[in-house]
């Protein structure tokens, strides 16, 4: 797939991001490879990273910042040559949790996005098969959201010795 591509180092990625997505992507302070990315340029940024040799999508996860009313999605992208790790952070509103799917870029995104959907209810636009993965069909609610309240079934809950 990417045979003769030279892997872009951290500085090159930073320079390229600054040139292409001027104010849409900014480097987070005190880091050399963590970026805050606006949701609309996530897909082109991912495509650029793949073309620059970052073939390894290590992780997708989300953090629920309830007080600020937003989800922060965290993407970890690596490469198989020098072990560098680029972190992309995307903030989306809690009311309309939707972001572009990266399945077309990395196939690994398929299950990782399904997991985030399952746990947070974040919709990934363009995902080929967005359904629950860990919880069973028919489970209601998004367990890892901070405002998730669990109603124990008759099989659950602590018991006490009287």
């Amino acid at each position: 797939m990417l045979n003769n591509v030279e892997i872009a180092g951290k500085q090159q990625v930073a320079a390229e991001f600054a040139a292409r997505f001027a104010d849409k992507i900014e480097l987070i302070e005190n880091t050399d490879s963590e970026y805050m990315v606006q949701a609309e340029v996530l897909l082109p940024a991912a495509e650029y990273l793949l073309s620059a040799g970052y073939e390894f999508l290590a992780d997708i996860t989300a953090v629920d910042y309830l007080a600020e009313g937003k989800f922060r999605l965290i993407y970890q992208v690596g490469n198989y040559q020098n072990g560098d790790l680029i972190t992309l952070k995307v903030e989306i509103s809690r009311e309309e949790p939707q972001v572009n799917s990266l399945c077309a870029v990395w196939k690994a995104a398929n299950w990782l996005e399904r997991e985030v959907y399952d746990m947070f209810g974040i919709e990934f636009a363009g995902h080929p098969d967005l359904r629950r993965i860990l919880m069973w069909d028919g489970f209601e609610g998004w367990p890892l959201r901070k405002d998730f309240v669990h109603q124990p079934t008759k099989y659950q809950g602590r018991r006490r010795l009287d």
Partner: peptide, 27 residues
């Protein structure tokens, strides 16, 4: 090797497909 990279395989499964990547050495 292409499949292994695209699916984010790691560990011995990745190295069995011809991609030499071991965090202990590379990072």
């Amino acid at each position: 090797a292409e499949q292994a990279k695209a699916y984010g395989l790691t560990g011995a499964n990745l190295r069995a497909s011809g991609v030499s990547y071991d965090l202990r050495r590379d990072a």
